[in-house]
Nucleic acid binder design. Structure first.
Lengths: 204, 186
DNA sequence: GCTTTAAAAAGTAACCT
DNA sequence: AGGTTACTTTTTAAAGC
């Protein structure tokens, strides 16, 4: 009886210690990603829910913490791509993706696909383009998505191409290389999405 | 009018069987030309047949997995070739070992582009996995028949996890009906 | 969970010319 | 800029770590 009681305390203490570690990890990554405090709070709520529903068994605290932060950014409408998250994480891309899908399913988060427009403000400010370019990029995204070009495409690449096209249309040209750098997408992908988008806009 | 069900093509059939006889894979690797055996990487010996094209994983226990065949008949033909090769090596093989089809992978074409974003919401986010950042296909798990369907923006789809030939047909009819009811097909 | 095998779908990426 | 190769997803059995 005493053993069980001691074990319970030990488990609870371990859980608390692990929770503190998870919270500090999420805080570290959120800082590195420049995510606001609200996002860290959402992420910590997700982690506590995962802990309460025993979703961490068989997975690393690192992977669950990282996935919660990735999900929280999306839920707050200020997504970080899996590539960006991987850069500040201590677990590989594939494991973050797999753990995120598991957590999202089990916690019934019913995550909507990321809207490429949600990447525009951040990429645009990193590129240092005007408000006009942002608006044009959003317009390009809406028009080409309505024409069915978005299905299956990476939201990051879609946003990157729209920003590249918008920078040309607004005479504030950014090179494909510059856009590729801030969006973590290859120039080949930007070129491919760009061609489809300007055709959709009737601008070729 | 051709229906999507008519576009179904079986792409791969996975089946398991066994010869009811323990095998010395090291010796078998030497006696079977073209056999790949790397016990450090994987416990099974890999043997490929050319006609029909298939790959067999042969285990020490005598159990065999056959994959890559384009039809159930091809699975039987490929395994018969392997059974005969083993017999030719003086390894006793039962007359007609039981062969169990474990998985059939098929492809089909719905004939219209799909708005995967709308489809994810329409089919129910709880039953759907659609993460275009990680993979361009929408993953839909169907209960009856119990198969997994991958749907792409082009309208092309993949049906996998079925054990019977008509699972794919039933699945395609079901998914077409669901998408039509959602007003998302063409 | 991982290792291996096959196959389709479409997107993205890496590498070479 | 283009082409090739290769990886992402799903399924499934096998024996063993």
């Amino acid at each position: 009886r005493l053993r069980k009681w001691q074990e319970r305390i030990r488990t609870k203490d371990a859980g608390e210690r692990n929770l503190q570690f998870a919270l500090s990890e999420m805080d570290r990554m959120a800082s590195a990603l420049g995510a606001p405090r609200s996002t860290r709070e959402v992420a910590s709520v997700l982690y506590r829910r995962a802990l309460n529903e025993d979703l961490i068994r068989g997975r690393s605290i690192e992977a669950v913490s990282t996935s919660c932060l990735y999900a929280a950014c999306r839920m707050e409408g200020i997504p970080r791509s899996l590539d960006e998250v991987t850069e500040v994480a201590r677990v590989p891309y594939k494991e973050i993706g797999r753990t995120y899908r598991y957590i999202a399913q089990e916690l019934k988060l019913e995550m909507q696909p990321v809207d490429p427009k949600e990447y525009v403000p951040r990429f645009a400010s990193e590129l240092g383009v005007s408000e006009e370019v942002k608006q044009k990029a959003n317009e390009i995204i809406d028009v080409s998505a309505e024409q069915g070009l978005l299905s299956g495409k990476s939201p990051t690449g879609f946003a990157a191409a729209a920003l590249y096209a918008a920078s040309l249309l607004c005479n504030e040209k950014k090179t494909q290389r510059e856009v590729a750098e801030v969006s973590q997408v290859t120039e080949v992908t930007i070129r491919n999405r760009y061609q489809e988008q300007i055709e959709a806009m009737g601008l070729y | 009018m051709t229906s999507p069900a008519d576009s179904i093509e079986i792409q791969n059939v996975v089946a398991s069987t066994g010869i009811g006889q323990e095998l010395d894979l090291e010796a078998l690797a030497d006696d079977l030309p073209g056999a790949d055996f790397n016990p450090d990487n994987f416990p099974g010996l890999v043997y490929r047949t050319q006609n029909p094209k298939a790959a067999a994983l042969i285990f020490r226990s005598g159990k065999i997995v056959c994959t890559g065949a384009k039809s159930i008949d091809d699975v039987h033909e490929a395994l018969d070739i392997i059974f005969d090769k083993l017999r030719g090596l003086s390894i006793p093989v039962e007359e007609d070992p039981e062969i169990t089809v474990q998985n059939i992978v098929s492809s089909a074409d719905l004939g219209h582009n799909l708005n995967l974003n709308a489809l994810a919401i329409g089919l129910g986010l709880e039953d759907v996995e659609y993460e275009p950042e990680q993979f361009p296909g929408l993953v839909y798990r169907m209960d009856e028949p119990e198969v997994v369907i991958l749907l792409f923006g082009s309208g092309k789809i993949v049906i996998t996890g079925g054990k019977q030939t008509d699972d794919a047909t039933t699945a395609v009819e079901q998914i077409v009906e669901r998408i039509e009811n959602l007003g998302l097909l063409g």
